[in-house]
Structures are given as C-alpha cells and as structure tokens.
Amino acid sequence: MPELKRLPATRIVATPAALDAAKWPDGTLALRLASDELLVTPPVANPALDDPHAIIIADAGYAGVWLPEAEALAFLERACEWELPVQRPAFAQGAVAGIAAKLWFEAGRVLLIVPAPLIADFEERMA
C-alpha cells in the first residue's frame, strides 16, 4: 500500500462565477470543495480571479496518494456508505472509513486526500 504524502495546495474562497471562469495551468487539479471554494494542487501563486474579495491561502493541511483505479475501488467500495461517481473525471467527498476524505477519479487512477493529521489512522484503516 503506497504511503500518503503531504499534498501542498492553495485554497480559494471566491464567488462561484469567479471560480467557474478561472483557468489553471496544465497538470493542476482544481477540486471544487463547495460552490464557493476550491482546493488547487499543486499550489498556484497569484491566481487570476474575477473577484476582488477572493480569499487565497496556502493550505498544507492535506495528504494524498494516487492509487490504481482497481485497487482504489476495491478499498472504497467497502469503506464508503455512499455511491461513488461512475463518470471520469469526477470529484467526490465524504466519509471514507469514517474519515473525511476527498476523492479525484481519473481514467485508470484515483487520488485519495485526507486531513494530514489523520494519515496514520487512514493508512491503518486501509490496510
């Protein structure tokens, strides 16, 4: 089982319209945590946003691991009490093995993100 590693990111709170319109560099993941909130990884410096009141902060509070899709689904299907998305790519968040997790599904692989203080707990529950 691969280890979870710190996932440096930028957290942005802004109007939904500004977040919808924002553009991100290639290779950047922009996860929509809420209609007015994004988690962008790797971190972005000075993102262009059409919202003068946007809050942009560095967020070092998460850890993540990429897993092959089959391996991830085998784990998630017994660790989630809710329906996993079937389309790709897709973002989902909710309790995974009792821990607040965020999931990014791509064709062939899945990124699991959990709060960094819970890395050890989560790895124990994955095993």
Partner: peptide, 18 residues
Amino acid sequence: MSILIPCPHCGSRPIQEF
C-alpha cells in the same frame, strides 16, 4: 438503515457525516 441527507453540493450522504 442510515438516514441519507441530500447535500446539494456533494450528493446524498449518511447522516453521520453531518
């Protein structure tokens, strides 16, 4: 049977998440 709460952003989730 867990009660499911329809979260408009995340979808239906068990009540224990709330």
